[in-house]
Every structure is written in C-alpha cells, then in structure tokens.
Design a protein around this nucleic acid. Structure first.
Lengths: 125, 125
DNA sequence: TTAAGTGCAAAATCTTTGCAAATGT
DNA sequence: ACATTTGCAAAGATTTTGCACTTAA
C-alpha cells in the first residue's frame, strides 16, 4: 500500500468536495479551487481518494465522472449503494439518503452499482 | 414529426440489437452488422430509435452509451425504469426484469433513470 | 534521500456535427 | 421532387499516460 503525502492541491480538492456536499466533476472542482492545479493532477488526486475510499465516483448519464465525499462511504457492503440524483435544471448531482434495493435473478452477484435518478430537485421545483 | 425511411443500415442495426437481446455499444453493433456503415450513421440511427422509443439508451459506468430494444420499453411511466446489469467478466450488459423501486425526498420529481448493477452474471459464475 | 506527487503535452476514447452527395417515397 | 439519410472528415469533450521535474517526509 502506497504512503500518501499531504499536498496543498490535495487539501484544496478535498475542501471543495467537502463543502459542496455534492458530486462534482473534475471541471467543476477545478473552477472552485483556490489554488491552481493541473487537470491531470486533479484526476490523479480524485482517483487516489477513490482507492482510499474516502470519495466515491459515479458516472452520470452524460457519461462524465462525478466525485463525492459521502458519510455513507463508510460501512457499506456494496460500493455506491445509494441513489444519486441529477437535476436537469440546476445540473447538480447529489447523493440521496435512500439505499438502492435490488433483486437479481439466480446466480447473479452484485459487487458494485451506479444508480442515478434524473429529474427536478427540491430547489428547482 | 419527421417521416422515417427504411434503409438497409437501419434494418441491420435493428436486427443486431434484436437478436442479441442485450444492450450494445455502437462499436459492438457495428462489428456484428452484415452491411457496412459509417460510425456516425449508426449513432444517428440509434438516436432516432431512441427518439421513437423503440430502443432505450443507458450509460454504463465506463461512460459509454449502450442501446437495447426491450419489451419493457412499451408501457412504462418512467423511461428505463428497470435495472441493467454489467458483467465484469464477459462485459455484457443486459436488462434485468426487476423494476427500480425508489423513493426520493419531498419535492423531488423523477423523470428518468439510469441504474446499473455491476458484478458477475449467471453465465460467468 | 527517495518515493510520491505534479505539470505539460500528447494520446486515447467516444460521440457529435457540417456539408455535399445519395436515396427512399 | 424533395426531405431524409448517409459518408467523410473534422471537431469536441473527457480522461489517461509518459516523462522529467519537484517536493513532502
């Protein structure tokens, strides 16, 4: 296992994610950061966060990756086991409290999920 | 509303989708087709199918678009209201019979969904 | 000191688009 | 006839990678 270092960029990425409380794209994160950083670096930081399981990644129906810190990241049996919601008006993506309840046919094993509901959020309705 | 025409390419795309019974990427569809066609054309055909609601599109966690004809396409209240399953071994994506049961907080409206379970399918387990 | 992190530029993917030519009805 | 469909090539967008340089510990 790799020994992580603390860097300003890493802190900045985490700060942005933490206080947005939402799932954000690399692009959106970069725009909000108070320190300059390279795109590739941000992706690398985000991917390291995912490896370390302090952030989870979801892929939205636009094909883009979004990253979120989530209290629910701890203590789950299946990664990303909750619904995400993308609002088509404000274009924000957030983690919903509800866990995904699923049932699969015989002999299927679920290891992961990526579930997004799309519509209008409370702030836009 | 646009008047659709029948073309060999369109038929070929539909034939491939129908008898695969799975969700396929443009790439995979093209490889299976018995007539030559341009990539862009295939995308355009697929998007027309989606408009006409004879095919539905899902975006998998690899960020790619997959297209499927599905009996469940008829008569649904919310588009793509069933789970999809991606097998990490055989890399196929299929529609599962189970509908997605969800609950959202107050004032949220769901118009669409994109839900994928990832794991090992019956054929690979 | 030295492994981990970064910047830059380039590559790799996937998807869409503009336009002129071809074709179904 | 003429609106729809197609091919081609180019553009767009997002994400990853190789490599040399920098930096945290």
């Amino acid at each position: 296992m790799m020994r992580r270092r603390n860097t300003a960029t890493k802190e900045a990425v985490m700060a942005v994610l933490t206080n947005s409380g939402r799932a954000m794209s690399q692009d959106a994160i970069m725009k909000q950061m108070d320190v300059d950083a390279n795109r590739a670096t941000i992706y690398r930081i985000l991917n390291r966060f995912c490896e370390d399981e302090v952030v989870h990644k979801i892929v939205a129906d636009d094909g883009k990756q979004y990253f979120a810190v989530c209290v629910k990241c701890d203590d789950v049996t299946v990664p990303r086991d909750h619904f995400h919601f993308r609002c088509t008006k404000c274009e924000t993506i957030e983690c919903l409290p509800a866990n995904v309840e699923y049932s699969v046919p015989e002999k299927y094993t679920v290891q992961q999920m990526n579930c997004i509901l799309i519509g209008i959020c409370k702030d836009c309705s």
